[in-house]
Design a protein around this nucleic acid. Structure first.
Lengths: 150, 150
DNA sequence: TTAATTTTGTTGCAAATACAACGATATTAA
DNA sequence: TTAATATCGTTGTATTTGCAACAAAATTAA
């Protein structure tokens, strides 16, 4: 069985490392860009869903989002019908940075796919989505305290 | 241009999260399994190369490896001809844990590839290697303090 | 050979990360 | 309706992570 985990790990760490270095210019500290782009693209999303989307611990998301709020990139709004949840929205400042994050991410994506044909790009994209759907099942399972049997 | 970065990030975080939870049983703290497997598979490797291989900061590798040594999983040996480098080797204890890490990683890999045909597995593996080679160029470039133009 | 540069490694910070544990609201079941 | 469970969010604590800055050996250039 071919090992794809290590390749994925290497690629992800390299990309994240690059982004973190490049976003310091915008005063975004480690990991914050992950949350900000998704809040911009999904205004009104709640923390819990955002953490699931990114695949990060709830408590990590809580603090990262708290810091984004403190620094004025996003704001939390109370919901009319549900006192428990807090909906997340980008501020003006957040919206203004979004294009830069997007541009950087697109550039990295383009560099990652250098030498790929149109159809190869399509293929890797589709296959990765399938991998992601496969693995998020186990992630949620293990995160909830269940034990995998291997 | 299809976005593959986010899928890769999600998959990588999910897998890493699962592994970190599962390896607590072996008293390996966050991230340590990454180093230990590679030292077992590449005995005599030096820190610098290991950090490059994993795609992690040199200083992070330094501390992770230091802790693996303290906890008796690996040992650092001086080189005959080069006083600067320290070659890394697994200890008996490290060797003994290796099969368990391998087994867990293989299981995750298998779960990630559920529903994949033999040829699809081959394809994603090959494409990911190409992505990794593409992106490690930028990683080393940015890590050295250079600025990408995008 | 001597000087400049690169390689390899460590430590001082500041910050992110995540498990445990807790609270509070919402939802579901009895 | 009331009780049990699930959802959503935060804080305490311990740990990892990584940029700066430094040191020392090795390599390359002058």
């Amino acid at each position: 069985m071919k090992d794809i985990l290590r390749e994925i790990g290497m690629i992800a760490r390299a990309l994240d490392s690059i982004s973190n270095i490049e976003f310091k210019e915008y005063h975004l500290t480690k990991g914050q860009y992950l949350y900000l782009v998704r809040i911009c693209e999904n205004p009104g999303i709640i923390q819990e869903k955002l953490a699931e989307m990114i695949k990060v611990d709830r408590t990590t998301a809580s603090r990262a989002i708290g810091k984004l709020e403190i620094n004025g990139f996003i704001e939390k709004r109370d919901d009319q019908h549900n006192q428990k949840i807090k909906k997340l929205y980008p501020t003006e400042k957040g919206e203004n940075i979004y294009p830069f994050i997007k541009k950087e991410n697109d550039y990295s994506n383009m560099k990652a796919l250098v030498g790929f044909s149109e159809s190869e790009t399509e293929i890797i994209s589709t296959l990765l989505q399938r991998v992601r759907k496969n693995i998020e099942i186990d992630w949620e399972y293990v995160k909830k305290g269940n034990k995998r049997n291997y």
